[in-house]
Simulated assay, not measured.
Amino acid sequence: MLLCADFDIKDYKDVINSRNFSGKVVLVTGSSSGIGEGITKLFSILGANVVVTGRKEADVQRVAKEVQELSPKKLKPLEVVGDLTKTEVINTLIANTIKRFGKLDVLVNNAGMGMATNITQKDLMQVWDQVFAIDLRAVVELIHESVPYLEKTNGTIIDISSIAALAPLAETLAYGPAKAGLDMITRVLALELGAKGIRVNTINPGTIHTTDILDPMSAHIYEVSKKIAPLKRLGQPLDIAKAVAFLASSDASFITGANLVVDGGVVYNFGYLH
């Protein structure tokens, strides 16, 4: 007879409540628009206390108001406006989160930028430094400041990368390497922080509908992406938010150092975006 060591049946039943984030504190960077806004809204609906942060005060206030309305208990989010490439802003963000909520359970590193870059453009190094400052350096600094608090809660870190980290695409000379670096940081920190009870994972989105369809460049990318995606549609912020909620949940308690690709399968035809 085969014997299998397994969890108690109550652990199976707990899966019913695995998306209940009541009492949890979730910080999503770049949460005043786009993917970050979607992630923050979903966590608020799922009962969490959330932090809304971004560069533009009006956007932060708008999302914060919507998030509070979505919260089952009308929990008021923390609002923080600032540029994460500045150390003082990162320090203030973490300090204010702990001051308001007393802890941190989930850190989602979503803030980033992607600018078209190629090896011959005159301002290449200026753009390179801008992209790496927000897409990579700010992430490392924010994690550095957050680890002492995440260790206390057996928290989790989720980095929002891109399929540009997995497949090369022209005009992404800065963005692609920055996101590939983010994927490696996730793996390194999964090894380093596992002993502290902290899980670290990455989500690699494909083409997500976040910008105005009237923008000519966005319209072109969206049109091509729908054609080459096996699922024949664009991703939505909610698609990424659902993946984040899964990785932050108890259902993913044995997942760390992973790259979860959420792209409708477009990565396999990525070259057609040229």
Rank of each mutant, 00 (worst) to 15 (best):
I158M: 06
P237V: 07
G54C: 10
K74D: 02
S44V: 11
L234E: 04
H209L: 09
C4K: 15
K179L: 09
S250I: 13
T256P: 12
V50E: 13
T207Q: 02
M1T: 13
V52D: 08
D129K: 13
T85L: 00
I98Q: 03
R199Y: 05
L142Q: 01
V261C: 06
V266K: 07
G181F: 04
H220L: 12
I255V: 15
L2V: 14
A64N: 10
T153F: 07
C4I: 15
R62C: 11
Q61G: 00
N109G: 09
K99G: 00
K242V: 01
K76W: 00
K242A: 04
E141M: 05
D59H: 14
L93Y: 05
L182A: 02
N17D: 13
T87S: 10
A252N: 12
D212R: 05
V50A: 13
D251V: 00
M217R: 03
L142I: 04
N109Q: 11
P148N: 07
V63H: 12
I208R: 05
P230D: 01
S22N: 09
K65Q: 14
T172A: 10
K179E: 10
L193T: 06
E151Y: 00
M217A: 09
I90N: 08
K196T: 05
K65W: 05
T202A: 15
K41W: 04
I9N: 07
A252T: 13
I228Y: 02
P205K: 02
L273I: 06
I208K: 03
H274A: 13
V51G: 10
